[in-house]
Design a binder for these strands. Structure first.
Length: 607
RNA sequence: GCCCCCGUAGCUCAACGGACAGAGCAGCAGCCUUCUAAGCUGUUGGUUGUGGGUUCGAUUCCCGCCGGGGGCGCCA
């Protein structure tokens, strides 16, 4: 917002140091930490330390020398338009902006840009975010939800920051797990599925757990039990073989049940407001995969050991000339010629680069697969894809339960749909308690927004690499650092504006307001937070970290709540102050709405 | 054996190598005839696992150790 002023000052500092023979280290500007006034700040520690190291004979105390330079520079910079005063303190130079000017620019920009406030310039790069890759044929659990939310928010962030963004899903629609469900369905339950897409999905999950118990080895089995288990296992493996061979009966069964599962997934994605651009299916990746293996062997990257009964492998460490084992060896094709996860991922990456022309590729996958992705990225590099350097595995921690890690096979899961329904119930209970002035038919709609807001925010407010111990009371809490807290700030801003609009003389939406009265601390801090939104978008996108935005929006809401409590808007001292504050409220509302949008959380007008 | 992640208030988590390590929950004390109290204000609580190193400056970077989790040629 004051880039021009900052640049002007930086040039003055550079010119001064050049004239004085001071070897100025690159300047890093950041906001002044002590709130109350706006400004930017930079330090001279590095410059002083460089001088000390150069050793001019004089003994130098770095902080002292930094302060000395800061003072000299301060005197030299003098007056700059838009700047109220400059101070040199503790080795820093603090440049304070004129309050009224800063406030006006920040508020005007937020209101004028509206929904585009904070949007970055196009970066001319295409980015693909791959997320939401559940194994199909059973219901979506809360761990899948964390993945999908993280991926969607990341996609929104990079898109808003200026990247051309493609959203991709890669569901596991084939594999032994899928076949296991198919097997038990066909053998014992065919035609018994319940109505309703979620009921059906949950039912499939139930029989999956049952099937797993039937085919998994147990302690203390009797010989009869062992024989039974082995027979069942043989049956499902035979079914897998038939699928591979294109057996029409198995394929048809698979197509139908797969579609049930996809229906459920699409419904949940709709609930989460996720619109995928590209669907990759594991079942389709298989064929592609086998072709690339030949290419890798031909290029001398992979070694085909099938002649001696081995698989096709890439000795990554050896190829890179590493002596210590780091990337190890990756198997990219089974000895029987069937595809592995690695086969498919390599093929998919090639497709992303060549067919979708992506410059950057992000994989939102849990942390256990970090080795896998390091290997894949290294192979892509050996393969000669320059985009390999911009492949990134956004790894995140588990959502665990008090009983341990979630496992669909064992049935130790909390389903997204159940939590979502519970969330709505809890919000409705609070709503009726508060006997608000909300019309009955809108309550359900708002309850969805608030309930989902709570759930989504609880997933986003923890950094990626940390496990989340799922506690439904915490996830659906409405107090403190939560989604509803932020949504409530939006509601409050809206209610002020709504009331203001009832006044026929209310015109301030279209005019720039002067903030040339004495601003309260709350106004200053709120304006400061609003003005930081665009840079926060960039930071969150550059670091691929939704948490940065989650943190920011919460802080913004906190500033707004404090402001709301302490500063009267409609009963302001006079018309000028009232109009300025209304402008500020409108700017805050817009910024909160934009931030919530990036977090995939709805911003209701009433709650 | 090797590789990756984590260790910060009682609990759950923050903190581009910078100015006094911050929030929420829990606890304690206050605030609703006012723009909705899903809120606000105040307060209790820390040798940032540990020992070194780099640096003017380390929660942050490097090394060792302790503790927890994950992974390592035919699972995904």
């Amino acid at each position: 917002m004051f880039e021009k002023e900052q640049q002007l000052i930086e040039e003055k500092i550079k010119a001064y140091c050049a004239a004085k023979g001071i070897a100025l280290a690159p300047l890093k500007w950041s906001a002044i930490p002590f709130a109350g006034e706006w400004g930017t700040s930079t330090s001279f520690f590095q410059t002083a330390a460089d001088e000390a190291r150069a050793g001019t004979g004089k003994k130098i105390t770095v902080p002292q020398r930094a302060q000395e330079i800061a003072e000299q520079v301060k005197a030299e910079v003098g007056n700059v338009d838009g700047v109220s005063h400059i101070e040199a303190v503790k080795g820093y130079i603090n440049v304070y902006y004129k309050t009224s000017e800063y406030a006006r620019r920040a508020v005007d920009e937020a209101i004028t840009s509206g929904a585009n406030f904070g949007r970055g310039q196009p970066k001319g790069e295409r980015i693909m975010v791959e997320y939401s890759q559940p194994n199909l044929l059973h219901s979506f659990h809360i761990g899948h939800a964390r993945n999908t939310i993280l991926g969607e928010v990341l996609a929104r962030l990079v898109e808003f920051a200026g990247f051309e963004t493609i959203r991709a899903s890669y569901p596991g629609d084939m594999g032994l797990g899928v076949i296991t469900i198919l097997w038990i369905y066909d053998k014992f339950y065919k035609g018994q599925e319940p109505e309703g897409i979620h009921e059906r999905g949950q039912w499939l999950l139930k029989i999956y757990v049952e099937a797993t118990a039937l085919v998994e080895k147990k302690d203390n089995e009797t010989p009869e039990e062992t024989a039974q288990r082995e027979a069942y296992d043989a049956e499902r493996r035979e079914m897998l073989r038939k699928w591979e061979a294109g057996d029409e009966y198995v394929r048809e069964l698979w197509r139908v049940t797969r579609e049930w599962s996809l229906e459920e997934m699409r419904d949940i994605l709709r609930t989460l407001d996720v619109k995928m651009d590209v669907w990759f299916f594991e079942s389709e990746a298989n064929e592609l995969g086998k072709a690339i293996v030949d290419e890798l062997v031909a290029r001398g990257i992979a070694v085909d050991e099938r002649a001696t009964g081995g698989p096709v492998i890439v000795k990554i460490d050896e190829k890179l000339g590493l002596t210590r084992e780091k990337y190890r060896t990756m198997v990219i094709l089974r000895s029987d010629g069937t595809a592995l996860y690695s086969t498919n991922d390599l093929a998919l990456a090639k497709q992303k680069f060549e067919q979708y022309h992506v410059d950057r590729s992000i994989y939102v996958v849990d942390f256990r697969q970090s080795m896998h992705f390091q290997q894949v990225f290294k192979i892509l590099e050996l393969w000669g894809f320059p985009q390999a350097a911009k492949c990134y595995h956004l790894s995140y921690g588990y959502v665990t339960l008090p009983k341990g890690a979630m496992s669909s096979r064992r049935g130790n899961v909390v389903l997204f749909k159940d939590v979502y329904d519970e969330a709505i119930q809890r919000v409705l209970a609070v709503e009726s308690e508060r006997s608000g002035n909300v019309a009955e038919d809108r309550r359900k709609e708002i309850a969805k927004q608030i309930g989902l807001g709570a759930l989504v925010y609880s997933m986003l407010s923890v950094d990626n690499n940390k496990d989340i111990l799922f506690d439904i009371n915490e996830a659906l809490s409405f107090d403190g650092r939560t989604g509803p807290y932020i949504q409530n700030a939006h509601v409050r801003a809206n209610s002020i504006l709504k009331k203001a609009r009832q006044d026929p003389g209310y015109e301030s939406q279209n005019t720039s307001a002067a903030f040339d009265y004495e601003l309260t601390r709350h106004e200053i801090e709120l304006i400061e937070q609003i003005s930081r939104f665009p840079q926060t978008v960039q930071q969150a996108a550059n670091e691929y970290r939704p948490l940065v935005m989650a943190q920011y929006v919460y802080d913004l809401a906190t500033e707004f709540h404090s402001f709301y409590h302490a500063v009267p808007v409609l009963q302001g001292d006079n018309e000028k102050v009232k109009n300025a504050r209304l402008r500020l409220v409108a700017a805050a509302k817009q910024t909160i709405a934009n931030g919530l949008k990036l977090l995939d959380i709805q911003a209701p007008d009433v709650m």
